[in-house]
Design a protein around this nucleic acid. Structure first.
Lengths: 166, 166
DNA sequence: ATCTCTGCAAAAAGTTTGCAATAAG
DNA sequence: CTTATTGCAAACTTTTTGCAGAGAT
């Protein structure tokens, strides 16, 4: 139970190719160059998975190359976001978190307010009802965000020490 | 149709009393004092309604008293949030927005990505399903956030000029 | 009087940007 | 070679905080 800090992490091998394809096409079309730090940041991001803040990602990246600057991490994540391989999320802790997006279904989040654990889920019936509600109000939905905050199984029985998000 | 920029704004008169009661009790229990700027900020906040950023609220407050500082607005809104009369929201535009909460049911938001209009709604069935999903993952939900982004009725037929949030 | 508040300005925290040096194609 | 990228530091934005003077009870 402990090792599953986050659900929805690193991509399976077959996704790797699709991801690289998307990335390469995007870089080519935009005249971008492939650099050592970009690759390192991107690889690290997809390898770790989860919902990383720039700070967290940066510290992981620096374990490999201490010279990489935050600015580069910010710029690279913006790039990944723009080409659709990562989504920027904001869970209200004051910093933007990124999550891998390539080839993944839309999903929502369950967030433990005690230990910071984040679990992803999807539910078609809820989505259908959202559509219905929107229609009733004359809206056309293009995207949505749903976050459930509460206590995870472990934290419900007080004991487990609160750990800050992985 | 145009005047309804936001749904869920100023409180009805009968709510005013309940609100004041809550506020007074809270201030008393916490040894807080009622001051000119606090009252002005709070009254302005409830009078305008909607989903105000500190910046917006501050500018409205300054129309009445140009000397009030942002710090005081921040401190006062934090206070309102703590006593449960306001909820801090984050719609991803980089600034915290507050909305009146006294005696209002929990609700979610429909947000027009073109004109910024925000419509509130509530749906018990969706909430019930959220509970179910959470339970399935071993979570106990204490609060949630659901935002549907898309185009409102007006903006679906291109013409209407986009206006920034009231 | 006493203890809380306010305004101001400085400090944080997170993110962005300008620029000269550096690396990629 | 030419153009994009990087690191660094300065700039920005939003929010918080320390402090001395002003205000509330």
């Amino acid at each position: 139970m402990e090792e599953v800090r986050l659900v929805g992490g690193a991509l399976p091998v077959n996704e790797q190719e699709k991801k690289e394809e998307v990335l390469n096409r995007y870089m080519e079309q935009h005249g971008l160059k492939s650099t050592r730090q970009r690759s390192l940041i991107i690889d690290t991001f997809f390898a770790i998975g989860g919902h990383l803040s720039v700070e967290e990602l940066w510290s992981k990246v620096r374990e490999q190359d201490a010279k990489v600057s935050v600015a580069t991490v910010y710029r690279t994540m913006k790039l990944l976001n723009d080409c659709g391989l990562a989504h920027a999320r904001n869970f209200g802790d004051g910093q933007t978190r990124y999550e891998a997006a390539a080839g993944r279904e839309h999903h929502d989040h369950l967030i433990c307010t005690r230990c910071g654990r984040i679990v992803e889920f999807e539910n078609d019936r809820i989505e259908a009802m959202q559509e219905a509600v929107a229609r009733k109000h004359g809206f056309t939905v293009t995207s949505h965000k749903m976050e459930l905050y509460g206590l995870c199984k472990d934290c419900q029985r007080q004991p487990p020490a609160p750990k800050t998000e992985a």
